[in-house]
Simulated scan of single mutants.
Amino acid sequence: MSFIDAELVQRIHNDFLDSYDEELELEMEDRIYFQDNDLDSPTQSPESKEYRQLYFRELFRLQAELVKLQDWVAATGHKVVVIFEGRDAAGKGGVIKRITQRLNPRICRVAALPAPNERERTQWYFQRYVSHLPAAGEIVLFDRSWYNRAGVERVMGFCTDEQYEEFFRSVPEFEKMLVRSGIQVIKYWFSISDEEQNLRFLGRIHDPLKQWKLSPMDLESRRRWEHYTKAKEIMLERTHIEEAPWWVVEAVDKKKARLNCIHHLLQQMPYEEIKRPTIDLPEREYHEDYARRPVPKDMFVPDIY
C-alpha cells in the first residue's frame, strides 16, 4: 500500500472515530469527565459496562434498519405519522433523537409545536397539525401532538369541558380519516413511575445544561401527578382504536425504552431493503485557466484549539 493510500485509510478511520465520539457525546446523559481518554467511569461495574456495550451494539443495528425503512418509505411513497406522548421527562425526546440521528431530515422530520398563538386558538383544533402531516415518502414524528388537549390542556384548565368532550368525539374520526387517506398512524405513550420522574426532575434542577428543560408548566405537572394519571387513563381508554391503537412503552430504563420502541416501530411496517445502484465517484476535472484565489487571513475563524 502506498503512503497516499495509507494516509487515506487513516483519515477514513479517524472520521469513523469522530462519528463514534459524537454518538458517545449524545449518550452521556450524566456527563462523566474523562482523563487519559478513558471512556469508562471508574465506578462502573463490569455488568454496567457490558450492558452499555450491548446497548450501543443494538442501537447501531436498529439504526441501520431504520435507514432501510427510510429507503423503503421513500421508494414506495408510504406515509407515516408517529406520535410520542408521555409525562414530562419520560424520555420522548431521547428516543426521537435516536430515531432521526442517521436519517435524512427531508424524509423523516420532527414536528414539535409550541403552545398555540391567539389566531390558532380560534381555528379548528386540528388545523395547525394538518400542515405537518406527511406527503408520500415521508415520516413525521410528533413530539407531543393533538393529544395535548386530553393531557396538559385538561389538567391545567386551558380548555372547557365542551372542548374536551368535542375532542374525544372528533379525534377517532380524525385519525380514521388519516388512515383512509393512506397515512399510517402509530401512537406511543412513554410510561414512567412517580419516583423516576421525581429523580429526573431533580437531575435537571441540579444540572445547568438541563435546567432549560424545566418550565413552570413542568413543575406544576409534578404537583398534579394524580390529575395527569387520571387524564392519561381516560385518554387511552377513549382513543385506543383499531385503526390507530396506543402502544405503551415502559420507560423507567431509558436505554431499554429506546431499543424497545425502535424495534417495535420497525415491526409496524413491511419494509424491505431497497437495492441502491452502485455509486462511482467521478474523476475531478482540472482546467489550466483556473487558479484558486487566496482567502484573506482575517476571514478565518481563530485557531483556538
Rank of each mutant, 00 (worst) to 15 (best):
residue 128 R to V: 07
residue 285 E to P: 11
residue 98 R to N: 01
residue 218 D to A: 07
residue 130 V to T: 06
residue 196 E to V: 04
residue 15 D to I: 10
residue 4 I to C: 08
residue 103 L to Y: 00
residue 143 D to Q: 00
residue 286 Y to M: 15
residue 69 L to C: 07
residue 133 L to A: 04
residue 140 V to Y: 00
residue 87 R to Y: 12
residue 35 Q to M: 11
residue 238 R to Y: 02
residue 284 R to S: 14
residue 173 E to T: 08
residue 251 A to N: 09
residue 107 I to S: 02
residue 272 E to Q: 09
residue 53 Q to Y: 06
residue 47 E to Y: 06
residue 91 G to Q: 04
residue 65 E to Y: 12
residue 96 I to M: 01
residue 252 V to R: 13
residue 224 R to Q: 15
residue 124 W to K: 00
residue 221 S to Q: 12
residue 126 F to D: 06
residue 93 G to D: 00
residue 35 Q to W: 07
residue 102 R to W: 02
residue 105 P to R: 00
residue 38 D to R: 13
residue 256 K to S: 13
residue 269 M to Y: 04
residue 141 L to D: 00
residue 259 L to H: 02
residue 279 I to Y: 12
residue 49 K to E: 11
residue 142 F to I: 00
residue 192 I to E: 10
residue 305 Y to E: 06
residue 237 E to N: 11
residue 192 I to V: 10
residue 300 F to G: 03
residue 180 R to I: 03
residue 229 T to E: 13
residue 75 A to R: 14
residue 64 A to N: 13
residue 177 M to I: 05
residue 34 F to Y: 12
residue 108 C to L: 01
residue 239 T to I: 04
residue 28 M to V: 06
residue 200 R to F: 09
residue 130 V to Y: 03
residue 210 K to S: 06
residue 177 M to C: 10
residue 181 S to W: 01
residue 84 F to Y: 09
residue 115 A to K: 15
residue 113 L to W: 02
residue 132 H to L: 02
residue 106 R to F: 05
residue 19 S to D: 14
residue 143 D to C: 02
